[in-house]
Design a binder for these strands. Structure first.
Lengths: 154, 154
DNA sequence: CTCACTGCAAATATTTTGCATCGGA
DNA sequence: TCCGATGCAAAATATTTGCAGTGAG
């Protein structure tokens, strides 16, 4: 929805950090914004970026992702499968988002609602731990697969 | 605390699943229970098990961990560093536990308190997602490092 | 006695790095 | 122009697999 906006924002951030805006970085960021719902791995992103920028190398994608993670533009996440995925931080709210991973169909849905405000406060008070960020994934059965299961039980 | 108890429980589970109780599996499970607070990687666990069972191979440790994960005896977890770690499920409560990962010193602390009862209910109601399990890690600064930081600021 | 299990080494998969070259600022 | 950024290939890690031999049940 606010994708072009985000694209500009991110390029600005890169610029402010004193980094060069190479065509490879542009293409990588652009693809990342376009497919931000997909939770791509480095390899997958590489394949997508290559469509627009065939000269790009996999190492550059890794290096760009590293830079983006340092600038807090993306989060590294991993869903049990040992592959690191990259998740664009939503720029609209300063808030994190959570994931719903369906164990039947493998779909990952995002929840853009901070459910942990109270919990984080409790962690701070009770354990003296200052929370800066979090990773929360629920594993279970998504609405679609639940419906499907119902149908099959008849 | 209830380690020997757990050890027996786990071996019983393996047996019930029709799996052989080889010396390698015994040694692996025993080490896992003994060091259950360490969040070991396969490689680290291998090194530890090797002390008691020098003949064991790394592949066996991987294969044993796979079996244990299938039987829900361990959870796979990963803390952003690309390495899969294995976390013994606490047998005492049926409940999950959460992690506090200190970004300064790298320590991982466990919280054995289910903070998400309300949140999971909300997820079910609002998103139609049936939660079976979750992974929750807070990233931040642990109490120890906070104290250290205070001292250095003086 | 049988077949699941194992060790070892080779194969894969994933990510990082060295280095000569290129090109954005 | 200059130094950061890139591509490529090689290296470093992490994990899986094929296979012949072994031993738990």
């Amino acid at each position: 929805m606010l994708q072009p906006e985000e694209l500009g924002q991110i390029e600005k951030k890169l610029h402010q950090a004193g980094l060069k805006l190479t065509p490879q970085r542009r293409a990588t960021v652009k693809t990342l914004v376009r497919l931000h719902e997909s939770h791509l791995s480095a390899e997958e992103l590489f394949a997508k970026v290559k469509e627009a920028e065939p000269e790009i190398g996999l190492a550059t994608v890794y290096r760009t992702l590293e830079v983006l993670a340092e600038l807090k533009i993306v989060n590294r996440v991993s869903f049990e499968d040992g592959i690191t995925r990259y998740d664009l931080r939503t720029e609209d709210s300063g808030h994190f988002h959570h994931h719903l991973l369906c164990q039947i169909c493998g779909a990952v849905e995002e929840i853009h609602e901070d459910l942990l405000v109270d919990v984080e406060m409790k962690v701070k008070e009770k354990y003296g731990f200052e929370v800066a960020d979090h990773r929360l994934t629920f594993l279970g059965v998504c609405a679609k697969c639940r419906a499907k299961r119902q149908r099959h039980l008849q």
